[in-house]
Design a binder for these strands. Structure first.
Lengths: 233, 233
DNA sequence: CTCATCATTATGTACATACTTATACGGATT
DNA sequence: AATCCGTATAAGTATGTACATAATGATGAG
């Protein structure tokens, strides 16, 4: 802030944020259009565009061609939860990361997994159960199906030093996927593995990952009791 | 696709996506820099920049000045869950939205809420318990503390046609907040209200909303058993 | 050999300009 | 009054240019 220079798009964003915060522009209100704002603030329309687009992405504004830009009626509806990279999450806290493969076999997948992986028959595919630990305490319990039709190399892979997740990340390109968060009641097996009482509420994250049209793997992560996924907006 | 025209930034994105998918550019690899790509594809650097910036936002690429752009080692770590707007979510499914205020009183908040709302003393503030219903079935149970020091009008508000959430959205500007997702075991009260068995695993969403530095409200939403929050990336 | 310095380089930002696209609105037609 | 349609408008996109900033790697002084 040497005193002047032309406004950066971040500066424009901050100005708009303030006006919204101070209710100069109220929810539902139209705000001046790009050209006017650019002139008022003494910068290029492109700069205003960049700023407003950002705010729209963040959900603070709603924009439609010709209709103009208005302050979103419901400001905070999006929140980006970053899916934890288990190893990183644990090591960042200075704790010791560790994992143990509990099950590894070829097994015909149940119908819901067949559907998710979009494989028709019930020929066996790779099934893995892995327990991830922080300081030797159970952290998250992973149940994974790998579409060995799409990733045949997974059958030979050894998961002694590299976790199944890390192996897959290295070996196949991911492209997108589906996520679902839900709460489950710990089964006796889950309770035993995670060291909690049966029936405890546990956070479960289901993820199916694809590469183009190929479905690669479907995972359920069941976190230890008390786990929280948080973010700020 | 009339056959030509110069590439749009979306087209550039798609090309890059494909190259990553086909492992022409593997995780960790450097990709050509903007100027080269622009020349190769026959478009402006700004266009390439827009495309690559988007992919970096999405977590598919990692960019650093001078160091260049490389394919992210771990592609999918971010996932944006959109926080449901209860009314919308229910009505979009063609179901009947309804809510009932179960508790409404001034009450001194417990320490954790005091901390979250950043209010020092334990003078009473507004406490609300609301049940939201879809087709008259319990959908989500909301426990809310409103910082009446910041929003005095809330004390007089009537929540007969407008839910507390909708009222707040209309009356005060939000700016940001903290979110946390966790799983809980239904207490007997929660089980009774939501019509599930005590101890059932339920998804809980805690949210504290602020306007600038003022903390406005702190809410816990406890969803009905079986609720899933999902998204695709 | 170590550390500071500086040129180099790739991304990042700002701008003027021009053109494209979606769509709200008003006027014409039924 | 309802429907259709053209047009003006505001956002969206593309480009060339210029300069800013950060990080790397080489150079030179101590």
């Amino acid at each position: 802030m040497t005193g002047d220079a032309r406004l950066s798009w971040q500066a424009v964003q901050e100005i708009v944020r303030q006006r919204i915060r101070q209710r100069i522009w109220k929810p539902g209100d139209q705000i001046p259009h790009e050209a006017d704002l650019a002139q008022e603030l003494g910068c290029a329309r492109a700069t205003v565009n960049r700023a407003l687009r950002g705010l729209a992405d963040a959900g603070l504004l709603e924009r439609r061609r010709k209709a103009g830009t208005r302050v979103a009626l419901n400001p905070i509806r999006r929140a980006e939860f970053s899916i934890p990279l288990i190893r990183e999450e644990i090591e960042n806290r200075g704790e010791r990361f560790d994992f143990r493969i509990l099950t590894r076999e070829m097994r015909p997948p149940p119908p819901d997994i067949q559907a998710r992986l979009q494989i028709g028959e019930d020929a066996p595919i790779l099934y893995l159960q892995t327990l991830y630990m922080a300081n030797h305490m159970p952290y998250v319990f992973e149940t994974r199906w790998v579409n060995t039709r799409a990733v045949p190399a997974a059958q030979e892979a050894r998961f002694d030093t590299m976790s199944p997740n890390e192996w897959l990340v290295r070996e196949v390109a991911f492209d997108g996927g589906d996520f679902a968060l839900s709460a489950i009641s710990a089964s006796t097996q889950e309770a035993f593995i995670l060291g909690c009482s049966a029936g405890a509420g546990l956070l479960a994250l289901d993820r199916t990952t694809r590469n183009g049209r190929q479905m690669i793997t479907s995972v359920r992560l069941v976190f230890h009791a008390g786990y929280r996924l948080h973010t700020r907006a």
